[in-house]
Design a protein around this nucleic acid. Structure first.
Length: 451
RNA sequence: GGUCGGAUGGCCGAGAGGCGAGGCAAGGGACUGCAAAUCCCUCUACACGGGUUCAAAUCCCGUUCCGACCUCCA
């Protein structure tokens, strides 16, 4: 896999058959949009690929339910802002969106992680980590009483992002608002005093307050993965400052390189534009379903693009993937019912080489068309690929039971066709189409399937 | 301004020195009461200007444009 820190392809090395993965999870103040889902899918693909190679995977994904620490005085905690807007308890909001996050992952066939630790439930561990950082002089209590990490104490700061401390001069992009108690502009808060805040605050040796955003990942990955993360996954935007700071904290705490390989997923555009509220193009999995597109079509679209390249998601691409998926499922059903797997070297190599899923998809299309490969083999190879692709290819495409009304219309149409009442049969076909049924008239008579 | 990616046919997208991926859309044909689905056929591209080479989409130099990150973000 491509490692952001060394800027090179790096082999993922197991330790006695085990690989640990940590994936930065959602901040649960709103629904995850399809861009977030692409990153979560990346962790799933890495995990499934390793499993295909016979390795055991231990995956941890955090839930950020404390809200991000605002970096200037204008910034508001996202969760609390949402709580204020909706007048609902912030923890209740967090749980609600956390549930929906899990539902979305399930619809995309993302295998569950071993644990989804919540920041709010690991407060003690974070506080202990901060205390230890102060002890070893990597952190200090600032003049405002909050605790800050001393960026200059960590020698290789900037290794992931390429940023140099001297170059990180404040004020070139945003109007810089000095954060009171810092000694140095690149330092960041580990524990922020509550100030006027009354909700989502905890007691600590430094007083009531809340943790900085980066410390949760350090604390939880050290606790749950025993300070050894083989693969750390996240969106490209987290490279800096989040992962840079996380690495500084984790390595300082353990005196070791905690993360072996940093994998970053590139961002997603939608219809050519960055997804943002202001552009009005934030797309949720829900919206895709509303359009009658299968959630797994989204998974297929993502697989058709390399995780390291920016991709432009479009409705046309989603619809094309929906059609491909349907065709594959139909073909699979025609190819038999066997559950045998057949290893295909091209496919396993494509997966193993920096997750080249586009090449894998290409290979499948070639196998699909290849007349020298028998149906049984085709099915077995597709099933082999599906272990990583996770597209439920063996699923029978028409899964919903039909209603009595649909059955009645179908029966009427059979009669209409027998009596060559074409106008009635066409009108019935239209009615059925509105109900989501597609009609095929073949030599053997009428057949149908869900669109 | 700094750092890092990218530019491929109507559209989306692989490929990384030689034999021109694939998909979608479109057009033609087969099939059909008509459709749909399916199958067959057609459409031949690498931002621009130099250079290296027997040979460049691919390597080098320059230019233009687009994007990402640079303390909210997946």
């Amino acid at each position: 896999m491509y490692d952001t820190r060394t800027r090179d392809l790096k082999e993922i090395v197991d330790r006695e058959g085990l690989v640990t993965i940590y994936c930065c999870g959602p901040t649960v103040y709103r629904d995850a949009h399809v861009g977030n889902l692409r990153t979560f899918l990346l962790a799933d693909l890495i995990s499934r690929t390793l499993q295909l190679q016979g390795l055991e995977v231990d995956l941890i994904q955090n839930i950020t339910d404390v809200g991000h620490l605002a970096d200037d005085f204008q910034g508001e905690d996202k969760l609390l802002a949402e709580a204020e807007r909706t007048r609902i308890d912030p923890f209740e909001i967090a749980r609600e969106f956390e549930d929906r996050f899990h539902q979305d992952l399930a619809l995309l066939n993302v295998q569950p992680a071993r644990a989804y630790p919540r920041a709010s439930e690991n407060m003690q561990s974070m506080i202990e980590s901060i205390q230890r950082l102060i002890e070893i002089k990597s952190a200090y209590v600032g003049s405002d009483g909050s605790v800050y990490f001393d960026a200059t104490s960590f020698e290789s700061y900037g290794a992931i992002s390429g940023n140099k401390l001297e170059a990180l001069k404040p004020g070139h992009r945003y109007e810089y608002t000095d954060e009171g108690g810092k000694k140095f502009h690149a330092d960041w808060a580990l524990w922020k005093l509550a100030g006027a805040r009354t909700q989502m605050i905890w007691d600590s040796p430094w007083g009531l307050g809340f943790p900085g955003w980066h410390i949760e990942c350090s604390a939880m990955s050290i606790d749950l993965l025993d300070a050894h993360v083989d693969v750390h996954v996240g969106g490209i935007d987290l490279r800096f400052p989040h992962h840079e700071n996380e690495r500084a904290q984790s390595n300082s705490l353990t005196h070791s390189e905690v993360v072996q390989t940093w994998v970053h997923g590139e961002h997603l555009l939608f219809e050519g534009k960055k997804m943002s509220k202001s552009a009005g193009n934030v797309v949720l999995l829900k919206d895709i379903k509303t359009r009658g597109i299968e959630p797994l079509a989204l998974r297929l679209v993502f697989l058709e693009n390399r995780y390291r390249s920016q991709m432009d998601l479009t409705w046309a691409a989603l619809e094309a993937a929906h059609a491909t998926l349907r065709r594959w499922k139909n073909s699979m059903a025609q190819w038999g019912e066997a559950k045998d797997l057949k290893i295909d070297l091209d496919l396993s190599q494509a997966f193993a080489q920096d997750l080249d899923t586009p090449r894998a998809i290409l290979r499948l299309r070639a196998i699909e068309k290849d007349q020298t490969i028998g149906n049984q083999d085709k099915r077995a190879i597709f099933l082999f690929a599906d272990q990583v692709l996770g597209l439920s290819l063996a699923e029978i495409p028409m899964s919903k039971p039909i209603t009595g009304e649909v059955q009645r219309l179908l029966d009427q149409r059979v009669i209409a066709r027998k009596t060559k009442n074409w106008s009635q049969s066409d009108s019935l076909r239209d009615q059925l189409a509105n109900l989501g049924i597609e009609i095929n008239d073949g030599a053997a008579g009428q057949s149908w399937h869900w669109k």
